[in-house]
Amino acid sequence: MSTSIESGPERSEPGLAEVVGERRHLINLAYRLLGSLAEAEDAVQETYARWYAMSRARQEAIESPGAWLTTVATRVCLDLLGSARVRRERYVGAWIPEPLPDRTEWTGGASGGGGAESADPVDRVTLDESVSMAFLVVLESMTPAERVAFILHDVFRYPFAEVAEIVGRTPAACRQLASSARRRMRAAQDPAEPVVTEVPQVPEGPAVPAAGQAGQAGQAGHAGQAGLVRRFKEAWEAKDIAALVALLDPDATMTADGGGLVGTVLRPVDGSEHIAQYLIHIADRAPGLTLLERTVNGRPGLVAQHAGVTVTVAAFSLAGGRIARIWAIRNPEKLRPWTEDGQS
């Protein structure tokens, strides 16, 4: 949890360093809960608006401003998750969580030439196993209550007694919600549907490393995925269908997200041969497409640029040494952190 001081109101306030220093933690929490950087920033802004709307006396009466901020941010996210499910039912095509670049590769923030104290939220999200695209996609299958209980307990290590206070349920109910969420995680790890191969299988207790932690196994997995993604990129550039098929799991799936704003397939493309043929079709229709190896949500991925503009960000999941899932995000509203000026 960060304790750094960022710019804030000039007036002296109780626990100002603690209040402002919670922003990084809140952004990390909200992104995992919502799967959208823009929505996470809105939730955190709303949380701070509620804090600053209180009188000085009410602020001073709060024993732990950090705990208060976490509680409010979580409840704001819980409300947003309920409305998001309705919006995503009307979404054109598949909805994929918003992809995040590594801060060292980000063109729109501090590492892209801005100041070291950039206020952009993407620079605050810790990229670990709990933000891998495979992990976030499984979170989308959970109910809002399951997702909140699971993230708070299994990812951020809040005891169930604290989770219960935050979400307004009993500790026993929160324990059941987290257990149900873990079952969803384990079901997604079935070999027939290898969605979250990066996430360790744990029968009981927390299912993932605590937020911000990365083990040696994860680093080794990154190296293996980087090599596979590089070979995939080279085969795509060479329009080598046989090489692409060899790199893909026979039952691989590619899902694209255009949001109805750009052209793309509305249904998943299934099977290694169909995916390879589709990729070659894309290359033929967009001559001059440039593929770049980039970190996507903490994992090796690809960025496609056309005429210098980022048009697609691709995340991958592996199974048995091959690519099992591809998520291609093309919705320009989700690609703002990947563009030169932060605009779509």
Rank of each mutant, 00 (worst) to 15 (best):
G215Q: 04
N28D: 11
R85T: 13
E98S: 10
P65T: 01
I166C: 05
H306T: 13
D257V: 03
K334F: 11
P332D: 06
E293D: 10
E146K: 09
W106H: 14
V92E: 14
A211R: 15
I275A: 07
G320E: 04
A223I: 05
V44D: 03
R184F: 08
G263P: 00
S179D: 11
R169M: 14
G205R: 00
L292T: 15
E237P: 04
L33G: 02
G321N: 12
P203I: 12
A252N: 01
V202C: 09
R58L: 08
S118P: 05
V195W: 12
P159G: 02
G258H: 06
K233C: 14
E41N: 15
G298D: 04
Q277H: 15
P209I: 11
A43L: 13
A17N: 07
P206I: 12
G205K: 02
A38H: 07
R50S: 11
A49R: 12
H281N: 11
A116L: 14
E198Q: 07
D190A: 15
P9C: 03
A226N: 03
W106M: 11
M254I: 13
E89V: 07
E198H: 05
G301A: 07
M142H: 02
T143P: 06
A252C: 15
E22R: 03
V125I: 13
P206G: 03
V76L: 06
A40T: 03
D42P: 00
G21R: 00
Y31P: 13
T170K: 04
D123Q: 12
G93C: 14
G168T: 08
V245S: 02
M185S: 05
P337C: 13
F316M: 06
P144W: 03
A307G: 00
W95P: 08
M254F: 14
G113V: 07
A43N: 00
R11K: 12
R183P: 00
L289V: 10
D123K: 00
R182D: 02
Y52M: 07
